[in-house]
Structures are given as structure tokens and as C-alpha cells.
């Protein structure tokens, strides 16, 4: 479904970042087995990138529907707080996981109702939970970091399956399931249609409201899953900091992946790639030994370059699909043709 050509800017960006990481730290690609678990910087990239990857899966669909979900970071904190406090209170693992996921689903459902049925603008609707959610998480944890030592829950953060860290396994499985869900059913097409033109989709007999309800609920579910992983990873629920600002990383991952904030065409796989790019950059900065004051500047510069490359490549890609372009390769590729507008959308 995604041609290699379309993914070229992102893949090149990733390759360049990995190369720079390798220059900064020659041991970057070294991998060994530590306690039956893969261990190395590349593994870190995937492992640390997993929560944002998971958020990006849900966020991709929300953005494709021409929405945005600002609440995912706060939902992570709520789900984490729920999992940690219930674990400390002695509930069995299954109940803990179920409760945390239900928290996420309910949050998503609330967002969905606000957007689909009360017609609130998504940015406003989800802002409510973004602000209130962290407060609720703090109420749950009563203001302190709830630390636990339950191996079952910890497994989701630091365990491994066939040597692969659990967060990566979970992100990969969820990614595959989500892609199957949207591309093996008609869900993907219907979400894209609603995102491009909700009115026309309603005229065509689509149940736009239910579709919107679904994407927000699914995003809430993804956020809860990411929250469980983040909490399990540090063996504690930190209501103040868990998932803080991650909604922005997730949105950025989706944008880097090439899904327009104006809705429509989306690719879950590309968004996950976007999350990896962001994390490869973060890990690279940590390894480089730059003074931390430069972290954000470096990050911003790299992102601008990726988006610029993406925009230029999209403007060029339009030529490929047009008749006559191949016959006259000497024609300039960039022009003010409408297809170039597409490239400006993510910016």
C-alpha cells in the first residue's frame, strides 16, 4: 500500500539520523544479549519510541478524520495511575490491565461524543481532558509517585519476548492489528472520506458520527496501552510527568509520516516510522554528549529539515502521476500546480 517511493523522504531522514548517530557514537549499532534481552542503542530507539509509536497509531486515525487528540498524554497518566494504584491495592494483574484500558476507552469515548455528537472542535474537545486528565491522575495517586514491584505488570515495561523488549512487541502487534483493521476492512477508506469531506460522506450514507466516535475511542485505548507501558517501565505512576507533552510527539510523528493535519490519506506504518525518527533523534542527542541546552534546538532544526524534504519530494511526486510528465522530463518539476498544494498541508 505504501510505495517505497512515497516513504523515501522519511527513510532517507531516518538513515541520515542513524548515520549521524553512528558518527557521534561508533558503537551505535552494537547489539548484544543481556539477561535474555536484546541490548544496544538501536534497541533503545525502538524501546523508547514504543509509547509514541502506540500513541501515533491512534493519533493517525484521529488526524485522518480531520481531528486531533490532545488528551493522549493525560490519558496515559490516568491509565498509569489506575494501574499502579490498583496493583498496590493488591488487585490481580488481569483486573489491573482491564481497568486501565477501560479508563482509556472511556476517555476516548468522551472525546468522541464531544466531537461527533456535540460538534465541538476536536482541539477544544480534547483540550478539556488534556487539562482535567492530569488532575484526575493526581487525585488517583494522591499527589505522589505510586511505586510497585509486581513482576506481572513490570513485565509490560521491561520484559521481553524472544529477546525483543515488550514495549516494542506490543507496539508492533498493535500496529499490525490496526493496519489489518483499517485496510482489510473498509474502515480506512471510510475514515479518510469523513476526514476529507464529512458532509459529502454523510450524503454518501456513511455513519460519520459513529466513525468519529470509533477513532477517538481507539486513540484513548492506544493512550491507555502506552500509559501502562510507561508506568511499568519505571515501576511507578508519576501523575505529573507520565506522558507529559507526548501528545505533541505523537502529532509530530503523524505529520512526519506524511498524514496531513487537514485529514484524509493516512498511513499507520509511516506514522510509526515517524515516531522512530523522533526517537532516533532523541537517542542520538543523548549519545552525542551535547550540552542539554541544545537538545530542543537540534531537535527543531532536524524536524524542519525533514518536513522541508518531505514537502519538496511531494511536490515532485505529483509529476510522476501525470500524463506527459515522463515524455518531457526536462520540464521543471515544481510549479504552482494544485498538486503542489498537497505538499504544503503538513507545514
Amino acid at each position: 500500500m505504501i510505495s517505497l517511493r512515497r516513504a523515501a523522504p522519511q527513510l532517507i531522514a531516518l538513515a541520515v539520523i542513524l548515520f549521524l548517530n553512528w558518527l557521534a557514537f561508533p558503537g551505535f549499532f552494537n547489539i548484544r544479549i543481556q539477561d535474555g534481552r536484546l541490548f544496544g542503542s538501536v534497541v533503545d530507539v525502538f524501546n523508547r519510541g514504543a509509547p509514541v509509536m502506540i500513541l501515533a497509531i491512534g493519533m493517525t486515525m484521529v488526524i485522518a478524520s480531520r481531528g486531533v487528540d490532545l488528551s493522549v498524554g493525560a490519558v496515559m497518566a490516568m491509565a498509569g495511575a489506575t494501574a499502579a494504584t490498583m496493583t498496590v491495592a493488591g488487585y490481580p494483574l488481569v483486573a489491573v490491565l482491564a481497568a486501565a484500558l477501560v479508563v482509556g476507552l472511556l476517555c476516548g469515548l468522551l472525546n468522541g461524543i464531544l466531537v461527533a455528537f456535540l460538534d465541538l472542535q476536536p482541539i477544544v474537545a480534547t483540550l478539556i481532558l488534556m487539562v482535567a486528565g492530569r488532575g484526575i491522575a493526581q487525585l488517583v495517586t494522591e499527589g505522589f509517585i505510586v511505586t510497585f514491584n509486581e513482576p506481572g505488570l513490570i513485565f509490560f515495561g521491561t520484559g521481553s519476548f524472544l529477546g525483543i523488549p515488550m514495549p516494542v512487541v506490543i507496539a508492533a502487534v498493535l500496529g499490525v492489528l490496526a493496519i489489518l483493521l483499517v485496510r482489510r476492512t473498509a474502515l480506512g477508506l471510510l475514515i479518510e472520506a469523513v476526514g476529507v469531506n464529512r458532509s459529502a460522506s454523510t450524503y454518501a450514507g456513511l455513519n460519520s458520527r459513529v466513525l468519529l466516535l470509533f477513532v477517538y475511542t481507539f486513540s484513548g485505548f492506544c493512550a491507555a496501552l502506552a500509559g501502562i507501558i510507561a508506568t511499568a517501565d519505571i515501576r511507578g505512576a508519576d501523575a505529573n510527568n507520565a506522558g507529559l507533552w507526548l501528545e505533541l510527539d505523537a502529532i509530530l510523528a503523524v505529520v512526519i509520516g506524511g498524514t496531513s493535519l487537514l485529514g484524509g490519506r493516512f498511513s499507520i506504518l509511516m506514522s510509526m516510522l515517524g515516531a522512530i525518527i523522533i526517537q532516533a533523534m532523541n537517542t542520538g542527542i543523548l549519545l552525542s554528549g551535547f550540552p542539554p541546552e541544545y537538545n530542543l534546538i537540534v531537535k527543531a532544526a532536524v524536524i524542519i529539515m525533514i518536513l522541508l524534504a518531505q514537502s519538496l519530494s511531494l511536490a515532485g511526486a505529483g509529476a510522476f502521476f501525470r500524463p506527459g510528465a515522463k515524455a518531457k522530463p526536462q520540464e521543471p518539476l515544481r510549479s504552482s500546480d494544485p498538486s503542489a498544494n498537497k505538499a504544503q498541508n503538513p507545514a
Partner: peptide, 15 residues
């Protein structure tokens, strides 16, 4: 934060 402390330490250890 605990989460960032862990992530950054992972980087230090590799480096």
C-alpha cells in the same frame, strides 16, 4: 523525572 532519568541513563550506559 523517573522516566527521563531511566532513558538518559540508558544512553549513558551505551555511550
Amino acid at each position: 523525572t523517573r522516566a527521563k532519568g531511566k532513558e538518559v541513563m540508558e544512553g549513558f550506559l551505551k555511550a
